[in-house]
Design a protein around this nucleic acid. Structure first.
Lengths: 145, 145
DNA sequence: CCTCAATGATTGATACATCAACTAATATAA
DNA sequence: TTATATTAGTTGATGTATCAATCATTGAGG
């Protein structure tokens, strides 16, 4: 592979890192909640009651982080947890009514945010970008870890 | 904007987050150093002696984080710090000989990593992707912060 | 039935990033 | 030139992520 190709690839990887660094705190300020936590809430919204380990697998977050997030979301009365009566090892999590209600507002904020972030992208460009990101993800999954 | 466009944008943003989450620890394992710290070393390599505040501006990292990274890099004898004799507020940082030597290895590891991560991307696709990421960055910079 | 392995969740230690508060040095302006 | 503001860097508190160790519960095999 040519040097210039490698250089471009390096720039892309650097830029992706920089973007995350730039976007993540802004997302949090605009939506009022961190992307991780909002992801958990969305998973709960879509799945209904779900175990923490299932959440963990879908969100790809460490189970310790799941526990800590849910502890705080529970304190904010956005979720409830209960032991699965059929298997006392597993904890089942659900959105509260309040949590469900608040999701609408969070969703709106998120939609505004992503709209602004990808402003100017045409209907042809978006699928192109999405496909590229998927390919990068597949490559990443092949790298030893 | 149509719902499906917004949905695509949301997917893209989610995927970018997921990618960072996936790539960052792998990068660290493969190269033997976190991307932040390697970025600092690269900046030092390119600039020669440079002040911490200049480093901070280029790396876009909090100055507290800069201080702590450099403290450890100094303990590992990869960098040296000295006060600017003309302005005792500023601390000037340089790579040590050892630091410079080690950069070759780090660079090789990084090149291997980014090559694998972007495997299969053609010479036409890479600039396209890079341009798109730049546009996203510009959009992000326009979002209130 | 009883041991031992596997699973789900939690906790503690550690790492890294941020913000806010602070110190020290320098620049500005009355 | 003295008071004030600005700049560079450090430190402490906090939040979040990881890994490793631990506990409780369940499952499987002798």
């Amino acid at each position: 592979m040519s040097d210039s190709t490698c250089l471009k690839k390096t720039h892309i990887v650097q830029l992706m890192r920089e973007l995350h660094h730039l976007i993540s705190p802004k997302f949090e300020r605009c939506t009022g909640m961190s992307a991780s936590r909002l992801q958990l809430l969305h998973l709960l919204y879509d799945h209904g009651e779900i175990s923490q380990s299932a959440l963990q697998k879908e969100a790809n977050i460490d189970s310790a982080a799941i526990t800590r997030h849910l502890k705080q979301l529970e304190a904010q009365e956005k979720v409830v947890r209960r032991k699965n009566p059929e298997d006392h090892r597993v904890t089942l999590v659900t959105l509260t009514e309040q949590g469900i209600d608040e999701m609408d507002a969070y969703r709106r904020e998120r939609d505004t945010f992503v709209t602004n972030l990808l402003q100017g992208f045409s209907d042809e460009e978006l699928p192109t970008l999405l496909a590229m990101l998927h390919r990068i993800r597949d490559n990443a999954n092949r790298i030893e870890g």
